[in-house]
Design a protein around this nucleic acid. Structure first.
Length: 678
RNA sequence: CGCGGGGUAGAGCAGUCCGGUUAGCUCGUCGGGCUCAUAACCCGGAGGUCGUGAGGUUCAAAUCCCACCCCCGCAACCA
């Protein structure tokens, strides 16, 4: 009989910088599912890879003084190194710069064009270079990018568009007929209500403003924009090429994918544009798209400027690879965002891995060594709590399987660890050390230890998809050859008389206080270094304007150093006093203030600037009530171009701290109204 | 009235669809037990008006209905 097949993918990682914990989590999660499916006897193909085109990478490479190809070679290698280190066992690793991928994407693009799905038109709008995005008039906020807040430019370019409208109805019908298509559930409604039913616009699928991309085959001035390029990886990696008479075996065997595992931020592209591209190619749609939640760092989004970025490889050096895997898999809820803190890392590690799992193995192994000279004793008749233990073991097996089938990974792990807890309790119930003192209880003692060893053996096998190394170690300690899932069906697979392996400490306990202190010290050091690096880099650039050459090799993290990550992390360059004086800041008093109806964040203010009174709209409604602002003296940017927000004109801007906690900058009430601030 | 999800012990969650035993679980906390083990393990206690409404339906509501409040996604509007 032919094996059932299972095709699972991660999103391909964007190669502009080193992936942080959230990216790595996705890969670990996907790997756990893939390993589980292999354990279930399926023929699995797990695909991951790197997305290597785009203007941002072009820019990063230029800054680093290397070619884009050299740049992505390095980053892609780094990403792959981390995946490998985390024991992610992928079957395919695609890079969007692979020549085969490039050629196939060109064929796909041409096919779309030839069948009339792609047409040439002109795009005019506001363009944000760092985000590589065009925005419409209504999206742009006061001349700035709505995503990153940096200035946008008026830009017009000839571009190719994909006729989405043609397929929308079919897609809606598909989503409605397949309620499981988008997971978790809540995401499905977001997509359907926010995008599909609201009216889907044609998608711009080419760019001519940069070169680092796959050229449009029939129009060399254009490169194929990210989505046709990146999304296609799921089929090109299997060898799909629309020009081929017959698709290769790999493709025929594995398409359609069973599930695409992706971050919730790109759900829209995977549940709307990707299915439509597939429809246009006449291919079946993936069975499921799972938009996993994000890991936040404590309460904040992870970001370097907050000094709270955690990298998986760094963490692995502290708590082991399986420690990281366990943490990521156990801590992340199914649908809501999870949060990572060092406290919870240590707590999870100590309580679950060291105390519950590690110590169970350790104490059981020690007793078997001491009382039975390192051999598996024969199992005796079932008595006392034996039945309950066995039942717990088999139930954990069923539960974890059921939960894994629906991608409830944390819950599946919980089921297994619950069983381990039951085994610890069993030791207290049966008190083997007391039995050991009575020679006539020898058989009972053997039975008790047998039950424990067998429970651990089954547990070790069940843990294999999540903690592959630990699973190996457990089975090695038991000296058991039986590692296949089938051997867990019946309690009693362990053979009496077999010799145990050497004892081992699976997870040494961590001293929480010392651990946290060390992390705090590191963070401080890193922050200092970061500031220093930035400053000297800027100095260098300003003074000589020379290109910097990326340090290679010994630099611990060269990628991170040169790629300014998120917009909010970018530090301002050094400016002269002239530049500063371009910004006209003046003191004003808030005369009146009210919430903008229908707006969540906006307050409409009348501000007295001495000479004049201005209407300013400010996005601080979540932090301040109108009452507490009235009468306050504030700093206002008065020469900012007017913007229209929610239909209300705003002329100027209040100074306030940004980020998650917005705090308005209040001035001394004695400040004369209209006074220039500098 | 944009769309969706959620408010359950100090924290994180399950239970809600298909109303019904003392509202569970993990962590934390307090007390006890044990000594095989990684100061680990086991037991017990305290701690909950299940967001609010002396609302509705019902013999019975965390669970169904209604109203309101708050939080989080997505979208929009962070000047």
């Amino acid at each position: 009989m032919e094996k059932e097949r299972f095709y699972i993918t991660t999103a391909i990682a964007y190669s502009s910088r080193k992936p942080h914990f959230g990216n790595t989590y996705e890969c670990i999660m996907t790997d756990a599912i893939a390993r589980f499916q292999r354990q279930m006897g399926k023929e699995v193909y797990m695909l991951t890879g790197t997305d290597e085109h785009g203007q941002k990478i072009e820019g990063c490479a230029a800054e680093a003084g290397v070619t884009p190809q050299e740049y992505v070679d390095q980053v892609s290698g780094e990403i792959r190194r981390i995946w490998d280190m985390m024991n992610v066992r992928y079957d395919g690793f695609i890079r969007t710069t692979d020549p085969e991928h490039v050629r196939r994407v060109q064929h796909i693009f041409r096919k779309f064009y030839e069948q009339g799905d792609i047409y040439k038109s002109e795009y005019e709008g506001w363009y944000c270079t760092p985000c590589e995005s065009f925005f419409t008039e209504t999206q742009v906020v006061d001349g700035k990018c709505p995503d990153c807040g940096r200035p946008v430019e008026r830009s017009r370019e000839e571009a190719y568009f994909f006729r989405m409208s043609k397929y929308v109805d079919r897609l809606i019908a598909h989503i409605e007929a397949n309620p499981d298509f988008i997971q978790p559930e809540s995401r499905r409604k977001e997509m359907v209500n926010n995008f599909l039913k609201a009216g889907l616009q044609d998608l711009c699928v080419s760019r001519s403003s940069f070169r680092w991309g796959i050229p449009v085959p029939f129009d060399e001035r254009h490169v194929i924009y990210v989505w046709v390029d990146a999304l296609s990886n799921y089929i090109t990696a299997l060898g799909y090429d629309p020009d081929k008479e017959e698709q290769p075996e790999l493709f025929r065997r594995f398409w359609p994918a069973d599930v695409h595992i992706i971050g919730k931020d790109i759900l829209r592209f995977h549940t709307i544009y990707w299915p439509i591209f597939l429809m246009a190619l006449g291919l079946p749609l993936p069975k499921k798209v799972f938009g996993h939640p994000w890991f936040n760092s404590g309460v904040d989004k992870m970001s370097k400027s907050r000094g709270n970025v955690i990298y998986a490889d760094d963490l692995a050096s502290l708590i082991s690879v399986d420690g990281v895997r366990y943490y990521a898999l156990a801590e992340m809820p199914y649908a809501a965002d999870g949060s990572i803190t060092y406290e919870s890392v240590v707590n999870r590690y100590n309580t679950d891995l060291a105390n519950n799992l590690g110590n169970l193995v350790s104490r059981t192994h020690a007793m078997a060594m001491k009382y039975f000279d390192g051999h598996v004793p024969p199992s005796g008749p079932v008595s006392g709590p034996d039945a309950e233990l066995r039942e717990a073991v088999l139930r954990a097996r069923e539960e974890s399987r059921r939960l894994m089938e629906s991608y409830h990974i944390a819950d599946a792990l919980d089921a297994i660890f619950g069983m381990l807890r039951r085994a610890n309790k069993y030791i207290d119930e049966t008190t083997p050390w007391a039995l050991a003192k009575e020679p006539k209880m020898r058989d009972r003692l053997g039975a008790v230890l047998y039950n424990l060893l067998e429970s651990i053996r089954i547990g070790g096998i069940l843990l294999a998809p999540f903690l592959p190394e630990t699973s190996e170690k457990i089975l090695l300690a038991l000296g058991s050859e039986k590692k296949e899932y089938a051997s867990t069906e019946v309690f009693g697979g362990l053979e009496a008389g077999a010799a145990l392996g050497p004892s081992c400490v699976l997870f040494a306990r961590i001293d929480e206080a010392a651990f946290l202190a060390a992390r705090a010290a590191e963070a401080e050091q890193a922050a200092t270094k970061e500031t220093f690096a930035k400053e000297s880099a800027q100095k260098e650039q300003n003074e000589k304007g020379k290109d910097r050459i990326a340090a290679k090799g010994n630099d611990r993290n060269p990628v991170e150093e040169r790629a300014p990550a998120d917009p909010d992390e970018e530090h301002p360059g050094i400016i002269g006093i002239k530049d500063f004086m371009k910004v006209e800041l003046r003191a004003g008093r808030i005369l009146s203030c009210e919430k903008v109806p229908k707006a969540k964040k906006l307050l409409r203010l009348e501000v007295d600037l001495g000479e004049e009174t201005r209407q300013i709209v400010s996005g601080i409604a979540k932090e301040y009530t109108p009452e507490e602002l009235c009468g306050k003296t504030v700093a206002v940017v008065v020469n900012l171009a007017p913007a229209t927000l929610c239909g209300i004109e705003s002329r100027g801007m209040l100074l306030a701290s940004g980020g998650d906690r917005i705090r308005v900058l209040f001035l001394d009430p004695e400040t004369p109204l209209g006074a220039r601030i500098r």
